[in-house]
Design a protein around this nucleic acid. Structure first.
Length: 333
DNA sequence: CCTCCACTGGAAGATCGGGAAG
DNA sequence: CTTCCCGATCTTCCAGTGGAGG
């Protein structure tokens, strides 16, 4: 059934983009000066998750690298590398192969100095989930770095700019802005068809079934591809030659819970205790939550730290805080 | 309406762990 | 070995906020 499992992985970047040609062209134009060895325009990619922002940024950057011999390119996920240090470290990794990766502590600001000292080929960096950056001033420092071209990815413009200071805001106002809307069912079907062509054997799934998947994914390609992956795996386990409607139906919820499970696995012990309490209670007031946590944890952290944990869990879309101040409750999703 | 106080989240400083320097 | 420096984590303190309950 499955011909090439990599094609069904979430991080897979296809050889051809079947939609979003407008967005691809706009981003290509922004990066055009890199072809002549100059810095490109700063580009902003906005849109909900699963609308192809990351995919298109990587696609355009990869294509650029194929056409220009002398170019450096690095993808940074600011969700994982959220601190100033980690971000700069990751960016340096893209140009400085001799950087001693075992060295945990470096003299203060040596990272930025090294980056500024770098002279040579144009450097294109993609900063994904840039709104997750703890210290946004690093963006200003990067903006000022010669020869550096930034592609910034975030969910919402207003949310991102709210966390930036004026100096940075006015600079970034001139950046090229590209909006990504949710995929329509037809577009999503086309994307899934493409994955099926490369990832699965022929005639294992009908167009009608892809429509079913696209419909359940509600414009989110990540969910759609995950459903396809789970369905193909299930059908294989059941010894089927083709994917049945029944398999798709059960795969939708399984795919969604697998996406959630992957996030739960990223939690540390303390956060998992909190997640457990909240899922048991469904909805809980802050003081009750703090109390129950103190009872269950072997060495409970302070309430302030618990609030930090809760914020992180909200970003993972595992829980939700409703209401403000006294009216606040935490709800399991 | 007003007051109270539970709750949030920023700021500053302490502590931890690991690596480098002496 | 000790001392210093770093980033990360955590605590302490606290100002600001707005819903609950008189």
């Amino acid at each position: 059934m499955i011909r090439d499992a990599r094609v069904l992985q979430p991080e897979f970047v296809p050889r051809d983009i079947v939609h979003r040609t407008q967005e691809v062209n706009t981003l290509s134009n922004a990066l055009e000066p890199v072809m002549e060895g100059n810095a490109g325009e700063t580009a902003f990619l906005y849109g909900p998750s699963g609308t192809g922002k990351t995919c298109i940024a990587q696609f355009v950057a990869e294509r650029l690298r194929e056409n220009v011999i002398d170019i450096n390119y690095q993808y940074v996920n600011c969700w994982e590398d959220y601190s100033r240090f980690k971000t700069l470290y990751r960016i340096l990794e893209g140009i400085d192969r001799t950087l001693d990766i075992h060295r945990q502590s470096t003299p203060k600001d040596e990272l930025l100095e090294r980056l500024h000292a770098h002279e040579g080929a144009p450097y294109v960096i993609i900063l994904d989930e840039v709104d997750q950056l703890e210290d946004k001033s690093v963006l200003y420092e990067l903006y000022r770095t010669r020869g550096l071209t930034m592609v910034l990815i975030a969910n919402q413009e207003t949310e991102l700019f709210a966390s930036l200071n004026e100096r940075l805001t006015s600079r970034l106002r001139t950046a090229i802005r590209i909006d990504f809307d949710r995929y329509s069912v037809e577009e999503l079907v086309a994307i899934l068809e493409d994955r099926v062509r490369w990832g699965l054997r022929e005639d294992t799934v009908t167009d009608g079934q892809l429509e079913l998947i696209a419909d359940a994914a509600a414009g989110d390609a990540r969910v759609g591809i995950e459903v396809l992956r789970v369905a193909a795996r299930r059908a294989t386990q059941q010894g089927l030659d083709t994917i049945s409607d029944e398999v798709i139906e059960t795969s939708v919820s399984e795919a969604k819970s697998e996406i959630r499970q992957r996030n739960v696995e990223k939690l540390i012990e303390e956060q998992r205790i909190l997640y457990e309490i909240i899922t048991e209670e469904q909805e809980i007031a802050p003081s009750d939550l703090y109390e129950q946590y103190r009872e269950r944890a072997e060495e409970p952290k302070s309430d302030r730290m618990v609030r930090n944990y809760l914020q992180k869990m909200q970003r993972y879309n595992l829980i939700k805080a409703t209401g403000e101040n006294r009216g606040r409750t935490y709800v399991a999703l």
